[in-house]
Amino acid sequence: MFIKGESKEKRTERVHEIMKRLDAHYGAEPPIFLKHNNAWQLLFATILSAQCTDERVNKVTEKLFKKYTDLMAFANADLLELEEDIKSTGFYHNKAKNIKACARDLIERFQGVVPDSIEELTSLPGVGRKTGNLILGHIYDKNAIVVDTHVKRVSNRLGLAESNDPTETEYQLNDTVPEEYWIRWNTHIISLGRSYCKSASPDCDGCFVNDLCPSCGREEILQATRAGATDRKSKSGKTGMKRKM
């Protein structure tokens, strides 16, 4: 929900203050939630993270990346065996198929190098704008906004986006959030969403940016974002993870 009558200048001032407090609370250096040692490991870990917690993914990849030590190992992996290796992350049929195909594409089309453009990244199997932007920001240090469920929900509640669609939310945030903050926006807002601005029971009273949030104390807005999340979960269960992440 955008704030009615808020000028672009006032909105930018509000974003600066929000980011100042986020930096003070979570640190100015964005953390990496998914453990990895190189670009393709982060790429595959992000594919695995769809509809799964980072903690679970990290437990799986700790063994996975020791078993499959390079792209060729993934490309040549037995599909049923790979499915079993990643089964606990959920939706393992599609994830295994995409990781195996992605490894093959990286070898055959990109000489084993993870590309550094959103167009090339999203041409890879199982890679959508969320995953592509994560690679751009955390591997190539290119300013990009990653929109996951936390970023979408919290950004809407903060009045900096007004959409339930991740891609549309990304484009809106490109306009409302100064580019210098794009990489940190993802990790900071995820942290805020996990600790304070939860979907079901947001701690508005305890939140350190509540005075800058137009949704604070407005139950009708919080209910709307919760309803949107419930509707999307219902749809994702029916579609079987067809959308690229």
Rank of each mutant, 00 (worst) to 15 (best):
R129A: 10
S195N: 14
D148S: 08
F44E: 05
D165W: 01
T225F: 11
A101Q: 12
E220H: 09
T61L: 05
M19D: 05
R226I: 11
L48K: 04
S123A: 12
N133H: 06
L160W: 07
D203K: 15
L158F: 13
D231G: 06
L82V: 08
I86N: 02
R218F: 09
S199M: 08
N186M: 03
E83G: 12
P202N: 09
T12Q: 09
E162R: 03
F110V: 03
N143T: 06
L121Q: 06
T149H: 09
I32M: 15
P125F: 11
A24W: 00
H25R: 15
I86A: 06
I18N: 01
L48H: 05
L34D: 13
T122P: 04
I221M: 14
E119T: 05
K244Y: 05
T46M: 02
E81D: 09
A96L: 03
T131H: 02
E108N: 12
E55M: 11
V209T: 11
D203S: 15
I118C: 04
H36R: 14
L173Y: 03
G128W: 07
C207E: 08
S236E: 13
E6V: 05
T176C: 05
G112E: 10
E170R: 00
N210E: 14
R194Q: 11
E119N: 00
K244I: 03
I183P: 01
D205S: 15
K8D: 15
P30I: 08
A224K: 11
N164A: 15
K142V: 11
R14N: 06
Q51V: 10
T69C: 10
